[in-house]
Amino acid sequence: MPDSVVIVGAGVIGLTIAHQLLLDIQSQSSASKLKKLTFISRNYPNDEPLTHEYTSPWAGAHFRPFPHRPEAYETDKRESAYTRVTYKFFQKFAAEHPESTIEFMKGVDWLAKPTSEYLGLGPGLSKDSLVDLRTLSKPELPPGVEYGCEYLTWCLNAPEYLKFLQAQVEQLCLRLRIPLEFSRLNLTSLQDIEKWFGGTNVVFNASGTGLLYSGGYDPKSFSIRGQTLLLNVPNPNSIRYAHATITHQGNDGSWTFVIKRPASNGKPQYILGGTKQLDDDLIVPREADTQALLSRARKLFPDLLFPDGSFDIVRVNVGFRPARQAGSRVELEASPENGLKIVHAYGFGGMGYEVSVGAAQHAIRLYKSRPSRL
């Protein structure tokens, strides 16, 4: 019997799960089509204005590898593997769909205080899983930086990519003749789905902070506040950041980065970031954070400045990355009452775009397997 599927959350994870699921159905003409596909979310990509509770549109959105940390080795290994699956998918997908805004370019890391895992090119930051990885020589590094490397990375325009992804889902559903519904409900539990959408037998839980079956949220989930700046820059198509993302870690642990936001038409803009603030729920921009970013950028990235020494700030972005203690949760369970399949896929922090395809494909494999009981 065809499944009736509900996806909770229309951020990059939820939309990617739908996209990958539909691509899988399209590629296997003998496979059963879905009876219905339903999204439940308070926010969608084409909403105006965007809210701070909808994290995905605010992202800088690029791939940055990192070595596995000893204290979180297994989680880092799993999530790093997701990023490589996404990377390979994007290489082909970007060529086929330039309107997606996915663009490959050089990635550069500058670290003032690298860990031994960086210096030793440990798992997650090695040539066997990265394209064109190269350690930078001392003369190539800016003052105060002990370690640097470069590799082939990608970036994309987060809000435009989300709209593109939703359009892809809509087109695939039309082509495959699968009924599609976008619902705006404020769920208090996953159990509510059975009340509002009778006949549902599969739920993908891409709710970010982990809405639970019986209500409330995963107690291991937490949010990381991020504040970034969207900039217009001089010579946007020829500035060095048009061809390279740069990430700098300072002696004080602060991170400063420049990520191109490719334009589907017109001039690209640039994301200057950023902050990683735990236990901070301020939804409005904090001026002190903005000034700290600009101060660091004046020293590290002076070519973002216009000739009169000013920055052209288009918007100050504030978003809340949905993270989870002990790493993301990608897991299959079933309701003890009626066997409802629930595939959890949440808690990716600031790596939503990087892990999106890999995590979605893992979630779909779980959906096809046998679940444990809730």
Rank of each mutant, 00 (worst) to 15 (best):
F66V: 05
P98H: 04
Q91F: 12
N232H: 10
R64E: 15
N201W: 07
R175F: 15
L230R: 08
A81Q: 09
C155K: 03
N201F: 07
R42F: 02
H344S: 04
A158G: 11
G122K: 05
C173E: 02
S30H: 07
I102Q: 01
R175C: 13
L272W: 00
S189D: 10
N232D: 11
G253R: 08
G216L: 14
G226P: 10
F39K: 01
A72S: 14
T38N: 11
L229E: 01
A244I: 07
D109E: 11
E99A: 12
N186K: 15
L176H: 03
A244N: 10
Q171Y: 09
F90E: 03
Y346L: 01
T228R: 08
P2Q: 10
G253A: 09
V202N: 10
N201Q: 10
F63G: 00
H362A: 06
K92L: 12
K276Y: 12
K33Q: 06
E150M: 09
L136C: 03
G215I: 12
L332C: 04
L230N: 06
G120V: 06
L300A: 05
D303W: 08
V343K: 00
N232T: 14
S41N: 07
V357A: 03
Y73I: 10
Q191C: 07
L121P: 10
L185G: 07
G226F: 04
Y73L: 11
D24F: 12
W196Q: 13
F63Q: 01
S30G: 13
F257T: 03
L111I: 10
L136P: 00
Q227R: 08
R329P: 06
Y270I: 04
E337K: 13
G327T: 08
Q227G: 03
G215E: 09
V108S: 06
S80I: 10
V131L: 13
L50V: 07
P49I: 09
S27M: 13
P371H: 06
V202A: 08
P302K: 06
I271G: 04
P322Q: 02
S254Q: 10
V145I: 11
R84Q: 14
L162F: 04
P70D: 09
I271Q: 08
K299L: 14
N46S: 11
R184C: 06
H97P: 11
E181V: 15
S129D: 14
R315W: 15
V131H: 12
D281M: 15
S310P: 04
L231H: 03
H52M: 08
N237P: 13
R184D: 09
L176W: 03
Y151W: 07
S221C: 05
T38M: 09
S189A: 08
T245A: 07
T101S: 06
G122E: 03
E331F: 10
A31W: 13
K36H: 15
S372H: 09
N43C: 13
L125D: 01
T55M: 08
R240Y: 14
E48P: 05
S32F: 05
E53G: 06
E79Y: 08
N235Y: 13
S183M: 14
Y353L: 10
